[in-house]
Amino acid sequence: MTESSLTRIPELLRQQQQALLTDWLDRQMSSSTLRPDLIREQDLREQSRRFLSLLAEAVAHGLGDHIQGDGYRAVSEFLGELSRSRANQGFSPTETATFVFSFKETLFNHLRDAWQNDGEGLADDIWRASTLIDRLGLHTVEVYQKGREAIIQRQQQEMMELSTPVVELWGGIVALPLIGTLDSARTQVVMENLLERIVESNASIAIIDITGVPTVDTLVAQHLLKTVAAARLMGAECIISGIRPQIAQTIVHLGVDLNEVLTKATLASAFQIALKRLGGAILTPDSQRN
């Protein structure tokens, strides 16, 4: 666009704000995309009113090429907030963006009245208005997307932590019950978690229980051995418990040397050994009588 004519958008938004709002609301209410099940009419009115007043303030600072500038901060923050709340209310990203896009028709109609017979001026302003509203609409989609990504990331983190709970069984004894398939990435997280917890809880014995691990391959076995070796360097002893018969067979067939590692069939027997190492023991009523 060379030598474009002066814009009438700021003036229009300032002077005819009430008329624009009434028009726009009528259109939204009669639109097929209205979701009366998700949002109250009163809230929609309030949101539309605030959007228009913030937009009028923003365009008064100029119709920039981007909406990140100072003048647009308030309106883009408002739309970000709107997008997040609509995501929570169950709107789809399309429905959220439609809120902004639906203003186009109203704005274009009013621009047509404002420019009357000046076709060139009208075309220029329609282009400007269209670009501006597209950017604001896409901004709501972007915020929606980012909100989703943050949720996914948080859930991944939670899952990772959930899948590797290190529990303190007794003063000086921690246990790590492993459940599910171990891949290289998860094993590394598990290993680091366990070693950190050994330091935090000042535990000299760590029991790694693999009852819930369906298979053990060479890589997983090596990771387990590395964990045991690292714990030993830090001054803690590891006991591996819950080795099922098939896994014992696999380990021997794979040629993995577990001779240096203390292994026990069950978590209970590992716990008993651990207590004994710390100078304690479990007394049953029978053993007390003797």
Binding site: E196, I198, A203, K226, A230, L233
Partner: peptide, 21 residues
């Protein structure tokens, strides 16, 4: 912990050294 993990990866398990927390 980070030092211990690295030493094991490096291949240095210091078998003759006693350790404590």
């Amino acid at each position: 912990p980070a030092v211990a993990i690295t030493l094991v990866e490096l291949g240095l398990e210091m078998p003759g050294v006693r350790t404590a927390l």
